[in-house]
């Protein structure tokens, strides 16, 4: 089976790539340069409006909003990478294993998988936060674990498809080991599916971090995080709506970017679409 490359350019893909690229470049740039120290408290610059010196103005601590957004992009990417990393690294092998193992074992693995699905990400993160102390990493591992089932499902159904193709059947009859088949044939062929799911899960992780930081279970102060910036902006919402607008738009850009990227990639990689349209 070859991956169907359906259309060379889809608008979702390019817009998604553009938005995600913006977030990534911002995050990388923040390592080299920010206009101001994002955590430096300066009473004299308190609640300044947008201007040349402070592009988006300052918050109630006199901290530069633009610098915070820049460093916040790092937090957002970190969050996504950890959560998606945990989910993909556990979920994908699990799904492939379930597809290739004896039927009863595969079935059992998927039942356990379904059970994990019953623990919603946010609930798991709140409980993990209570158990291990609330911070970004704990929250993201929880989100990651909660996203394992979707990867396992995708990987399993993809792997089942690959397993029934002629060349895999040929490889099996030639006496190749299961591991070899999994590495040589199955994983490369489901990579596209996993990447699509990663993009979607990334968006979910970003939203979850925002909600958790809002509830106080996420990123610790003063590390800039878009979710915490939103939470801190609340009391000033009526007077200084920009304090909420800036991180709100940032979150929307990241989530929109990863969702569009996922859609675009799906259009390219999803074999079902090839049949359908």
């Amino acid at each position: 089976m070859t991956l169907a490359v359906r259309r060379s350019s889809s608008p979702s893909l390019w817009v998604g790539l553009g938005l995600v690229g913006l977030v990534v470049v911002t995050a990388l740039a923040s390592f080299l340069w920010t206009p101001h120290d994002p955590t430096l408290v300066d009473a004299a610059q308190r609640l300044r409006g947008p201007g040349t010196d402070y592009v988006f103005g300052t918050d109630k601590f006199g901290r530069d909003l633009f610098s915070q957004v820049m460093v916040g992009a790092r937090t957002t990417l970190f969050v996504g990478v950890v959560a998606v990393g945990v989910a993909a690294l556990i979920g994908t092998p699990l799904g492939v294993f379930a597809a290739m193992a004896p039927k009863w074992l595969g079935e059992f693995v998927m039942r356990v998988n379904d059970l994990v699905l019953a623990f919603p990400a946010l609930l798991l993160a709140i409980v993990f936060g209570a158990v291990f102390g609330a911070d970004t990493l704990t929250a993201m591992i929880a989100i990651g674990i909660a996203s394992v089932p979707s990867f396992a499902r995708i990987a399993r159904s993809g792997a089942l498809g690959v397993m029934s193709t002629e060349y895999v059947l040929a490889a099996r009859s030639a006496g190749r080991s299961r591991t070899a088949i999994a590495v040589r044939h199955v994983l490369p062929n489901i990579a596209g599916l996993v990447i699509v799911q990663s993009s979607v899960s990334f968006a979910i992780a970003v939203l979850s971090e925002a909600a958790l930081s809002f509830l106080g279970f996420g990123t610790r102060p003063p590390t800039p995080s878009w979710g915490r910036m939103l939470q801190e902006s609340q009391e000033l919402l009526a007077v200084e709506p920009r304090l909420a607008l800036v991180p709100g738009v940032a979150i929307a850009i990241a989530v929109l970017g990863f969702n569009l990227l996922g859609d675009g990639l799906r259009d390219r990689y999803d074999p079902r679409l090839e049949v359908r349209r």
Binding site: T39, L40, V41, A134, P221
Partner: peptide, 20 residues
């Protein structure tokens, strides 16, 4: 957050840990 910022200025590192 202000305490941390102020103490950083005199060279003292501070890590904030919010507890329930």
């Amino acid at each position: 957050q202000v305490v941390k910022s102020e103490l950083n200025k005199i060279g003292v590192g501070v890590s904030i840990e919010p507890l329930d």
